[in-house]
């Protein structure tokens, strides 16, 4: 943590954090705290916006009228989460003279990354089910942790988000159960989707940095922006979901996966972390297609956005 700020002010700020006080957008904050928040919340915001795309592919194709309505509502919520988080991020970058447009330009230029899980292809309807059940299931664990974050505007956004995620997971459970209880071909497609998403789910929380935490992770823990490590979150996910996945007759594609009672933790095969790094740098299987789609439609809508902005 390097800062050029007045050490007394910084100390008083850290004392507020330690007392469990919440920080507001108009409170004094060290530059480093602001930068860590921007990094985290802007990334979270664009991840929600980009995260709408893989499921959106299945909106018009959802099998029944009911599923069409439900997945439309679900994807709409995700964009809504993007909106909430964007507003929080916008208020953080405003003192730096930046706006929503700058954040989106950062996304398109690759400076602002979106979550690794949304670089993956979703080639079947079963993928839409697995995303809603397990990817959202993983997301809610991270977001649940962040409810104790020190930054009050982020927490207020997350409270709304977490409430809706509860519905999303049930929407996903419902799709997956229908497929699990369906025809052989439906069951097969569900198992295939699980296998496709498993490495992404194992990478979801990021590498285990317990032995050599990154400077970002250290700063985030110090500022109580986050309160748990990547590995703690991943263990929590496995505890919640592996038994449920197996109970539906599905098999996670990891023969080593088991709970070690002595160590009190799940043993699992490490995903390819080199691949993880390539993915977050925009080299995942669907990275470029999704970014191109978003950028193209964003540019196509510029004339309408200009009319909207100038109608003030």
């Amino acid at each position: 943590m390097t800062t050029r700020e007045d050490p007394d002010r910084l100390e008083a700020f850290l004392a507020r954090i330690d007392r469990g006080e919440r920080i507001e957008a108009d409170d004094w904050m060290p530059d480093d705290y602001r930068q860590q928040l921007i990094r985290l919340i802007a990334m979270h915001a664009v991840s929600e916006i980009m995260g709408a795309l893989p499921e959106k592919e299945w909106v018009p194709k959802a099998p029944t009228l009911y599923r069409k309505l439900a997945i439309m509502a679900k994807v709409q919520d995700e964009i809504g989460h993007g909106q909430l988080l964007m507003r929080v991020a916008e208020d953080l970058v405003a003192p730096l003279g930046k706006t929503r447009e700058d954040l989106l330009d950062d996304l398109f230029s690759g400076r602002l990354k979106f979550h690794n899980v949304f670089h993956m292809p979703a080639p079947t309807w079963a993928d839409a089910g697995i995303i809603a059940w397990l990817v959202d299931g993983a997301a809610i664990i991270t977001q649940g942790m962040s409810l104790s974050s020190s930054y009050a505007p982020y927490v207020r956004a997350l409270q709304r988000i977490v409430e809706e995620e509860g519905f999303h997971i049930q929407h996903g459970e419902s799709i997956c159960m229908a497929l699990a209880e369906g025809s052989a071909s439906q069951r097969h497609s569900l198992q295939a989707a699980l296998e496709r998403w498993w490495p992404a789910l194992m990478m979801f929380f990021g590498p285990n940095e317990a032995d050599h935490p990154s400077s970002h992770q250290k700063a985030n823990l110090r500022y109580r922006i986050r309160t748990k490590t990547n590995e703690e979150l991943r263990q929590r996910f496995l505890t919640k979901y592996v038994p449920r996945i197996r109970s539906l007759g599905l098999v996670p594609p990891d023969p080593t996966l088991h709970y070690d009672a002595e160590q009190g933790r799940w043993i699992y095969q490490q995903p390819d972390w080199e691949w993880f790094r390539r993915i977050i740098n925009g080299q995942g299987p669907a990275s470029s297609a999704r970014l191109t789609l978003k950028r193209l439609t964003y540019e196509e809508g510029r004339w309408a956005r200009a009319a909207l902005a100038q109608g003030r």
Partner: peptide, 15 residues
């Protein structure tokens, strides 16, 4: 109308 989902000209309008 649903084809616009996620691609709207403005985030609030998209919703």
């Amino acid at each position: 109308a649903s084809e616009w989902l996620g691609l709207g000209v403005h985030i609030e309008e998209d919703i």
